[in-house]
Design a protein around this nucleic acid. Structure first.
Lengths: 212, 212
DNA sequence: GATTTCGTAATTGGATACAATTATGGTTTC
DNA sequence: GAAACCATAATTGTATCCAATTACGAAATC
């Protein structure tokens, strides 16, 4: 039986707090007091502390011993670092995945794109964006590489939320995604990698302008 | 006043367990029961669970809800993934750092090398190895890039421990490190990057052979 | 004899109470 | 009046107890 019930309270709290941070409800630098949060989320402080720790190692929260936790303030060069890394790692993942991609993978990727087109809530676009990229990279079966890329993507989503660059990019991004998907379907390695690279560079460019 | 006392019990437990895993005392797949561990380390289960969670997000421990935690078993392709990523990211860090490296940085790097030469315990070589690389990359001031590279290095140390490849490489590694340091001192960008790349490729090669 | 079922033990997750640390405000001292 | 100091409050970390889940094994059923 698979339901929401098998999720632990700490995990549910993690998801809820993450959403609140990515929503912009909790802004960078804002303190996250354990008692207040636990009261608000109706969980005890014990699972709440686990949630804060998870988010800390995710990079969304900064916690210092005995001093408390607060929403992380992205360091100045984070966007540059993330995109330079993604530009190096994601083409590698895509290249490794291409020979193993199946129709099912393409279908999953397309579903994510369709869902993104229909989605109104900007804070959920990040997740669908990752679903798309994940569908295309995953056939590489390179777990460790995938885990790192996922971390970088989630951190990018956070940075983009801060810069409020997601909404603006959604239409452009959609077109770039379709182009990449088509190249994969054609088994066009050079085209796919070129498309992915261009996609990342454009996103990088846009978010940098937003940050001014 | 800065002492060990300001470290929280959870952090101390994290360090101790990490050492035990990197020591080989706790082998991959071995279950880590909370009560047994807390009794052994003389801490309550509460900070112990935080420690296990930290190690889990570090990649040294695999934890499944309600099922318990065990020492992680490195996935089959982890070595390839780690070294391919490091070969892409570390040259970037080194290149960014080179113009900002100072005599102090070189001194720190050299201290790590000297300490490694004098160190008898193989399980401590990993940390000194990272200290050396950190000293050379850190002047780049690129926090996010550094954090990712540190993760990859710690994961590599874990994989090397499993493969028992550290001891064998220590002398070769020392020579390669000295060569890299000299190139940095000469502000020889091409030489430094070539040296780093060669160093990583040789380490990759050796650990692969050890894994057979 | 193999498989299912159910009850008990072992183990993990969560809530509460307590201890340790840090922040705050007022008082004193120069 | 500013700075140092102390007491108190606010907050985090830890220990202990309880609840929820899973693992194990014996009995029952086919």
């Amino acid at each position: 039986m698979v339901s929401d019930t098998d999720k632990t309270q700490a995990e549910m709290a993690t998801d809820r707090i993450r959403t609140l941070i990515l929503n912009g409800t909790y802004r960078p630098g804002q303190p996250l007091r354990q008692e207040a949060l636990s009261a608000h989320l109706h969980v005890s402080r014990t699972p709440l502390r686990h949630a804060l720790q998870s988010l800390a190692e995710e990079g969304l929260v900064e916690a210092v011993g005995f001093k408390g936790a607060r929403v992380a303030e992205p360091d100045p060069g984070i966007v540059r670092d993330l995109f330079e890394m993604r530009l190096l790692l994601e083409p590698l993942a895509l290249k490794s995945a291409l020979p193993h991609q199946t129709k099912l993978d393409f279908a999953k990727a397309e579903m994510a794109l369709d869902a993104a087109d229909a989605e109104g809530d900007p804070s959920k676009l990040s997740e669908l964006n990752w679903e798309f990229h994940h569908a295309l990279y995953h056939p590489s079966s390179r777990q460790t590489l995938m885990k790192t890329i996922e971390q970088l993507n989630r951190a990018s989503a956070f940075a983009e939320t801060i810069a409020r660059s997601i909404v603006v990019r959604s239409e452009k991004s959609a077109a770039e995604h379709r182009e990449l998907l088509q190249a994969c379907r054609n088994a066009d390695e050079d085209g796919a990698i070129a498309s992915l690279t261009k996609h990342l560079q454009l996103a990088y460019h846009d978010i940098q302008n937003k940050e001014h």
